[in-house]
Amino acid sequence: MRTRFFLALTPLLLTQLAHAVDCDNAADQATMNLCASQQHAAADKELNALYQQITSRLKGNPDSKKLLVDAQRSWIAFRDAECKFSASGVEGGSVYPLIYGNCVTELTKARIETFKTYLKCQEGDLGCPVPGV
């Protein structure tokens, strides 16, 4: 019974710990890894919000929406494969989560900028795949 109670509280404790971490002054590998994970989660959240905005604008064009979905799936596969390769020199080491996490965060931030550009398209811009508002 005690084990189940502890396991039930573990996510809550980890969440509280994650909020208490000072990523600007991370001094040990575990903290740096946690911070990299938090940064990736924040970038991923922003990317998903922008993706939802774009799919909303494409609701009247199922063909374009399918192209976006396919492109995003391919991009995610590329990002993950690229970062596995990028971090392969430290695979199995304690620094791997940091190197991999930083890579996916940077590539995600670049994709965020692409999505932001799509969302700035002006009505009538034939070179832009996302209709303006």
Rank of each mutant, 00 (worst) to 15 (best):
M1R: 12
R2W: 08
T3F: 13
L7F: 09
A8M: 11
A8R: 11
L12T: 13
L14W: 12
L14G: 02
T15K: 09
T15S: 13
A20W: 04
D22H: 09
C23F: 02
C23L: 05
N25D: 11
A27V: 08
A27Y: 07
A27D: 15
D28W: 03
A30H: 09
A30K: 10
T31R: 02
M32H: 04
M32K: 13
N33T: 06
L34Q: 11
A36S: 14
Q38N: 07
A41L: 11
D44Q: 07
L47E: 08
N48H: 05
A49F: 00
A49M: 07
L50D: 03
Y51K: 03
Q52H: 04
Q53S: 06
Q53N: 02
Q53D: 03
I54L: 00
S56T: 15
R57T: 01
R57A: 02
K59H: 10
N61E: 07
D63Q: 15
S64Y: 03
S64A: 15
K66M: 09
L67Q: 13
L67R: 14
L68M: 12
L68P: 00
A71D: 10
A71I: 02
Q72N: 02
Q72V: 04
Q72W: 02
R73P: 00
A77Q: 12
A77K: 15
R79A: 08
R79H: 04
R79S: 08
D80S: 05
A81R: 15
K84A: 11
F85W: 12
S86Q: 13
S88A: 15
S88T: 03
S88K: 10
V90I: 05
E91D: 12
G92E: 05
G93Q: 14
S94W: 04
L98Q: 10
I99G: 00
G101P: 03
G101Y: 07
N102H: 09
N102T: 08
C103H: 04
V104M: 05
V104T: 13
T105L: 08
T105Y: 03
T108C: 09
T108P: 00
T108Q: 06
K109C: 01
A110V: 12
I112R: 05
E113R: 14
E113P: 01
E113H: 09
T117P: 05
Y118Q: 10
L119H: 07
K120D: 14
C121Y: 09
Q122M: 12
E123F: 01
E123M: 14
D125M: 07
D125K: 07
L126S: 14
L126V: 10
L126Q: 12
G127Q: 12
G127P: 00
C128M: 06
P129L: 06
G132E: 02
G132K: 06
G132C: 08
G132N: 05
V133H: 13
V133I: 13
